[in-house]
């Protein structure tokens, strides 16, 4: 027989997922955003299967002509570059890189930011002082010089791009989560949890964390969006990973080719992808903004 306790936990998990789906589905923009993210994720996962060509393979049209700088057509739906690379294939593989960087640095930064915010806010005192001075120092750190130095020291590597992005963006989420933690820890249900015997660890992660969760998801979405934009800017300036291609990297190649005025299609697809994904993330995060206070929720 399945334990009744386990059944209850599974039921609550199912209800929680239904609840999240309901939040996202409640609003047409966030529903749209959600499906855009799903589609991009599928493209990223199955990129090698979807892309018809290698991103750095010179392509020829059906009549056997070298297909350089072709506008979109049935054969090359997003056109080609001046070196005859298929832009659709590039875009599909770039989706994988961009999402990987966005998701990893977005998630790492929210995990670091949330933990620092929760711990500083909950314990207060000296620990809070030290952690907050640390974030202040990072606030004084400009992104571009920082990533340029990092890349000059270690080379153009995906890991360093992620590291640089994480170091820059965790601080905002840490501050916001800390402020929210300070206000929640003074509420009486925290005193009640303590009276019932809950440890500090349990209070932080079982009582405070679920109460900052809507805010956390909001900032997770922001952080991912921010990472994608930041990666695109860095790549456009030539500080991306040299081995793989990303959306920002495609724009950088366009800039280098000197064909910016001619090849509108080369410019269009990566830009549209960046804008579409970033706004989708913002739409989904908006849905969570509305549930940040459960008492405002009507059912």
């Amino acid at each position: 027989m399945v334990s009744s306790h386990l059944k209850r936990r599974l039921k609550y998990l199912r209800l929680a997922l239904v609840e999240h789906y309901r939040i996202i589905n409640a609003n047409p923009l966030s529903r749209f955003g959600f499906w855009v993210i799903v589609v991009f994720t599928l493209v990223a996962l199955f990129a090698p299967l979807i892309a018809p060509y290698d991103p750095w393979e010179m392509v020829y049209d059906s009549e056997g002509n070298f297909a350089a700088l072709q506008p979109p057509s049935w054969e090359f739906p997003m056109g080609t570059t001046h070196l005859g690379y298929d832009l659709f294939s590039q875009l599909v593989l770039a989706t994988r890189t961009t999402l990987l960087i966005g998701a990893t640095s977005g998630l790492i930064s929210i995990i670091i930011g949330a933990n620092i915010g929760l711990i500083a806010g909950y314990y207060g005192g000296k620990l809070d002082e030290v952690l907050m001075r640390l974030t202040d120092i990072l606030y004084g750190m400009p992104f571009l010089p920082f990533i340029i130095v990092l890349i000059a020291l270690f080379g153009r590597k995906l890991e360093f791009v992620i590291l640089a992005i994480v170091l820059i963006i965790w601080r905002t989420s840490a501050r916001v989560i800390r402020a929210q933690t300070i206000s929640i820890k003074q509420r009486q249900f925290i005193a009640m949890a303590k009276a019932r015997g809950a440890s500090d660890f349990r209070i932080i992660y079982k009582h405070i964390l679920p109460n900052v969760l809507p805010l956390l998801l909001l900032y997770a979405a922001f952080n991912i969006a921010w990472s994608i934009i930041t990666e695109a800017s860095a790549s456009f300036l030539g500080f991306g990973d040299g081995e793989t291609i990303s959306w920002g990297g495609m724009l950088y190649e366009l800039w280098l080719s000197g064909k910016t005025r001619v090849a509108w299609w080369w410019f269009a697809s990566p830009s549209v992808c960046i804008i579409l994904l970033v706004t989708s993330l913002v739409f989904v995060s908006r849905a969570y903004e509305e549930v940040a206070n459960p008492r405002l929720r009507k059912r």
């Binding site: 509420r187 249900f189 005193a191 009640m192 009276a195 969760l213």
Partner: peptide, 13 residues
């Protein structure tokens, strides 16, 4: 302990 305010002392989540 039983708390005074039943609106504030139960975790809303």
């Amino acid at each position: 302990m039983i708390f005074q305010d039943p609106y504030e002392s139960l975790n809303p989540r």
